[in-house]
């Protein structure tokens, strides 16, 4: 390393040293070029890492409306595994009769479940409770005045559809040949 300073002729002869490297037109242009090129690459990489279609949703068939009477309820399982409680509350014949509630507690994201005897949804994490329309009646969500998330519903030709997040089902394993198991 002692020889490091031995010969700086090339740089010195042109009167450029480290401090002036980034000054002057050519220096600025070089910096701009480098930032533009590698910056664009970085932007592409960032876009790559950001989830592609975060909020893609899909209307899925639930049931023929006529099969549910007022007071009936059912659980619909969305492709991402979330269970959606769907209930019919009146018989007017339009989509307003129906209610689709998320089973995710708005407090901290635990799964609520229906307690038929108490006529309420119950969250076991912090004892949150919700009435049949999804409004919180007790526990931390009750204090915060939160409600269970509602999924959009639509009626088409008497068929009930719910809009839920779409999950691309990985092609997973190719179909395995019959292993001879008796199903």
């Amino acid at each position: 390393m002692a020889e490091a300073h031995r010969n700086e002729t090339a740089a010195d002869s042109e009167g450029v040293d480290r401090r002036t490297v980034l000054t002057g037109a050519s220096g600025l242009a070089m910096a701009a070029g480098l930032v533009a090129g590698y910056g664009a690459f970085g932007a592409a990489a960032a876009r790559y890492l950001y989830p592609s279609e975060p909020a893609k949703k899909r209307w899925l068939f639930v049931v023929e409306a006529a099969r549910m009477k007022s007071g009936d309820s059912m659980v619909f399982r969305a492709p991402d595994g979330a269970s959606v409680a769907i209930a019919r509350q009146s018989e007017s014949g339009n989509v307003g009769d129906f209610l689709a509630l998320s089973s995710v507690c708005p407090h901290l994201g635990c799964q609520v479940h229906w307690e038929g005897a108490a006529n309420r949804f119950f969250c076991p994490c912090h004892n949150g409770t919700f009435d049949p329309s999804g409004r919180a009646t007790g526990g931390p969500p009750g204090e915060a005045g939160q409600s269970l998330l509602r999924y959009p519903l639509k009626l088409e030709n008497g068929l009930l559809f719910v809009e839920v997040p779409d999950v691309k089902l990985a092609a997973t394993d190719p179909v395995k040949p019959n292993s001879g198991e008796v199903c």
């Binding site: 090339a10 740089a11 042109e14 450029v16 050519s26 220096g27 242009a29 070089m30 701009a32 070029g33 480098l34 930032v35 533009a36 090129g37 590698y38 910056g39 664009a40 690459f41 592409a44």
Partner: peptide, 26 residues
């Protein structure tokens, strides 16, 4: 090649790289 020329070339190449990435975007 002078250092000044090199800097201009680097600037040019940097923007060319940007242009090629714009093509990638397209």
């Amino acid at each position: 090649m002078t250092l000044n020329a090199k800097r201009w070339i680097i600037a040019f190449l940097g923007f060319t790289f940007l242009a090629s990435l714009l093509f990638v975007q397209y």
